[in-house]
């Protein structure tokens, strides 16, 4: 039996430290973050991924790569001044009607990727973030949620 489980049971048995309503409300709201019919993009382990921000493919650290349905999504996150920036690239090069949605549990922003598939969103609250790629004629592809802190 794990000690954390024992401790958690003791706290619940005593009614100590109950779950805050804000945590429950956030959990209920997660239902709205489903992507019906979407395809989850699994993380791909790459030692030196191509730069998510650079058109010349210069390798950069901190880039996560996801792949599904013939699509690769590279995601790089940074936090500055308490706000999160998400930059990335989808490949192969997207068609003209492709849209990139960068989502946190609180806000989602949609971008039209460049011809080379680059996209960027700034001013997001740090925390959980996921990227969804919407392509005409394809199911949306969404990355796993990643946690970002400064």
């Amino acid at each position: 039996m794990r000690e954390e489980y024992l401790l958690a049971a003791l706290r619940m048995g005593a009614g100590a430290d109950p779950v805050p309503e804000g945590v429950s409300a956030a959990a209920r709201a997660v239902f709205g973050l489903r992507v019906p019919g979407g395809v989850p993009a699994a993380p791909v382990d790459v030692a030196v991924p191509p730069g998510a921000r650079s058109a010349d493919g210069t390798a950069q650290s901190g880039v996560r790569r996801f792949s599904a349905d013939g699509l690769v999504i590279d995601v790089e996150t940074t936090v500055s001044g308490g706000r999160m920036e998400v930059a990335g690239q989808v490949s192969p090069a997207p068609g003209p009607d492709t849209r990139i949605e960068v989502r946190t549990p609180h806000i989602g922003k949609v971008r039209v990727p460049s011809g080379s598939g680059h996209f960027a969103v700034a001013g997001l609250p740090p925390g959980w973030v996921s990227v969804v790629c919407h392509r005409p004629g394809h199911a949306p592809v969404f990355t796993r949620w990643i946690h970002v802190r400064s």
């Binding site: 779950v19 805050p20 804000g22 945590v23 956030a26 959990a27 997660v30 239902f31 973050l33 489903r34 989850p40 549990p105 925390g127 959980w128 996921s130 969404f142 796993r144 949620w145 946690h147």
Partner: peptide, 16 residues
């Protein structure tokens, strides 16, 4: 702790 709990719910959504 709030982030950990929210993360678990998000994992459920992505693994539904």
């Amino acid at each position: 702790a709030a982030d950990a709990v929210q993360g678990a719910w998000l994992r459920l959504v992505e693994n539904a």
